[in-house]
Design a binder for these strands. Structure first.
Lengths: 201, 201
DNA sequence: ACTCTTATTGAACAGGTGGTAAATAATGGT
DNA sequence: ACCATTATTTACCACCTGTTCAATAAGAGT
C-alpha cells in the first residue's frame, strides 16, 4: 500500500470482492484454505477488514461452497437442457460433468463432505446443492421415460446412483485412483445399463 | 506429571502408544486433527517427544489412515469369507459394510480423499487400501459367477461400482444426506440388479 | 470548508501449527 | 557404584489461526 493512500471502496463492491476471493481460494487450494489472512492477502487488505465483512469464517466457507456449486449447476443445466430430446439431454449432461474443467469443483465437493461433518451450514449447503443436481437428472430421466426411450426404472434411484458414481469418482481423482478414462467410463457405462440407452463417447 | 518423576518407557512401547493415539484421534476427530500437540496431550507427554518418534506428521497421517483402513479390511474379510457359498459371502460383505459401527472409518476415508490431494503418502495409502477392498469383492464375485449364481458381468467393473456407491454414501452420511436406510438400500439394490441376486435385508 | 459516517488500519491478544537445539534425568549394562 | 545410552523435557523458533479495540482517514453531504 503506497504511503498513506488507503483506497476506500463502497461496501457492496468490497463484499463481493471478498466473496470472489473466497471462491478463487477454494477452487485452487481447497475449502480448508479459506482463512482471514488468505483472504486479506488476496485482496491486499488487512485481516480485521475481512472480519468486518465476514464475521464468521464457518458461514463464509458454507456460502462460498454454495456459490461455487450452484453456479456450476446452473451452467451445466443450461448446457444439458439445450437439446430437445431427452437422449441428447442426458448425453449433454454426462459430457458436461465429465469435462476436466470441472475438476476443481469436484475437489471442493469432497472438501465439503469432509468439512461438513463439523460445519453444519456447510452440510446444509451440500444437501441443498445435491438436491439441485438430482432434480436436474430426474427431470431428464422422466422425460426420456415418457418418450419411451429410457428403461422404466425409478428416476429417483437412477439419479442417486448416477451422482453417487460421479461423486465417488470425483473423490477418487484427488488421490489419482485409476485413470480418468476408467473413472469416466464407470459412470457412463453404468448409466447406459441402467437406462438401457447408448451414450456417445 | 508429579514433581521430578519422569516416566520412561521403552521405545517400541511408546511408539505404538503414539500410533494408537493417532488412530483414536483420527476416528473421533478426523485425520486433520492429528497434530503434534494433540498427540502429546493424548499421551501426557511433550510435543518434541512425539517428533522424536514421528519426525513427519504428513507420513504419520498416512500410516495412521493405512492402519485404520487395513485393520478394517482384514476384519471384514474374515467375516465375509466365513461362509462357504459366494452368495452368503456377498451378503456377509454387504452386511459388514453397512454396520453403523463402521461410520467412523467412513469418515476417515472421506478425510483421506480430501487431504490426499496435498499429501502424496496418504494418497498412495488410499489407493492401496482401495485395491485391497476391490480384490476382496472381485474374489467373491468371480466365485459366484463360477458357481453360476451371479450374472456374468465384469467382476472388476462390478466391484468398482459397488465401492463407488459405498464410498459416496459414506461421504453423504457426513452431511446427513438422505436417511441411512436410503443410503444403504441404494448400495444393496444396485448390487442386486448388477449381479442378479437377492441379498437379504 | 466543515462534519459526519464508516471503511480501513495498527497493534495487540490467546492460541494453534510443525520443528529444532540443547539440557536433563531415567534406565540398562558393567 | 559408576558409566554410557537415550527417553524426555525445557526453551525456543517462525508462522499460522480467529478476534478485539481503538485510532485513522477517506469519502459523502451540507
Amino acid at each position: 500500500m503506497a504511503a498513506g493512500t488507503t483506497r476506500r471502496r463502497n461496501a457492496t463492491e468490497r463484499a463481493s470482492e471478498i466473496r470472489d476471493a473466497a471462491q478463487q481460494i477454494a477452487l485452487t487450494r481447497g475449502l480448508a484454505a479459506i482463512s482471514l489472512r488468505a483472504l486479506a492477502a488476496h485482496c491486499g487488505v488487512t485481516a480485521p477488514l475481512i472480519t468486518h465483512y465476514e464475521p464468521s469464517m464457518e458461514t463464509l466457507v458454507a456460502t462460498t461452497f454454495s456459490d461455487i456449486a450452484e453456479k456450476e449447476i446452473a451452467e451445466v443445466e443450461r448446457f444439458a437442457l439445450a437439446p430437445n430430446k431427452p437422449l441428447d439431454q442426458i448425453r449433454a449432461l454426462i459430457e458436461a460433468i465429465a469435462d476436466p474443467a470441472r475438476d476443481n469443483v469436484g475437489e471442493v465437493w469432497t472438501d465439503a463432505w469432509s468439512l461438513g461433518r463439523r460445519n453444519e451450514p456447510l452440510a446444509e449447503a451440500a444437501r441443498q446443492s445435491m438436491d439441485s443436481w438430482h432434480a436436474l437428472a430426474i427431470g431428464i430421466i422422466r422425460a426420456g421415460q415418457d418418450a419411451g426411450q429410457f428403461a422404466p426404472v425409478s428416476p429417483e434411484r437412477a439419479a442417486l446412483v448416477l451422482f453417487a458414481l460421479v461423486d465417488a469418482t470425483s473423490a477418487y481423482q484427488l488421490v489419482n485412483f485409476r485413470s480418468r478414462e476408467t473413472r469416466e467410463s464407470l459412470v457412463r457405462e453404468t448409466l447406459e445399463d441402467m437406462l438401457d440407452v447408448s451414450l456417445g463417447t
